[in-house]
Amino acid sequence: MLTKEDIAKRIAKEVKDRYFVNLGIGIPTLVANYVREDIAVEFQSENGVLGMGPFPFAGEEDADIINAGKQTITTLPGASFFDSAFSFGMIRSQKVDLTILGAMEVSENGDIANWKIPGKMVKGMGGAMDLVASAENIIVAMMHVNKAGESKILKKCTLPLTGVGCVKKVVTELAVLEVTKNGFKLLERAPGVSVEHIIASTEAELIIEGDIPEMDI
């Protein structure tokens, strides 16, 4: 079974040369730590920065330079700042190549729910609805099952949706799944995790063709 860092490591392999990438809060933020150093990648944060760098050294934090998770950050040479409307303009017009975000539930037609649990938790959608509605390439980083052991990979989402038919790929502690027009296709399994374990942990049907390789992380 993968740790959160392992999930981030596996997703980092999806980041290609010359990609502009938007990382969501949580596991997606960790992806930046594992991107190959020999490729050119720029990270966009929807609060208005392109060319995000690592966290600052202690004492060098600047209250005016943060990411969408409100964390203090630095910028790299070539970085730029812009306002919120412009930021979502570049998202809507599909200048951002890859969007990586977390989810509470994903369904087999690519629907995603990640912003509200009625009666319990209402924090808001932030930029997630805009991102999933416009991005062409959306990868979800999430846990396969909840704390009670129930599957979050579903035939149909039960929570209020963030977006419809938009998720392309899901990476969990158990597996890599691709969303096809016929449903979830099992691409890879976590080291030491059996196909049977993944089937038992997944409410949705899985398309399984031939031997399923272990993830290389």
């Binding site: 929807e46 306002d83 919120s84 409307a85 930021s87 979502f88 998202i91 809507r92 629907d111 209402v122 808001g124 959608m125 932030g126 930029g127 997630a128 609805m129 805009d130 509605a133 416009s134 209020p160 949706l161 963030t162 977006g163 419809v164 038919g165």
Partner: peptide, 30 residues
């Protein structure tokens, strides 16, 4: 609660004298 890009654009539209606009954000959701 409104999607962040929509919130920004609703401000920008007011700033730019545009009464309304279409966005894909939120389609199929509440």
């Amino acid at each position: 609660l409104t999607p962040q890009g929509t919130l920004a654009e609703r401000c920008r539209a007011a700033q730019a004298g545009i009464p309304a606009f279409f966005t894909p954000a939120g389609y199929g959701t509440e």
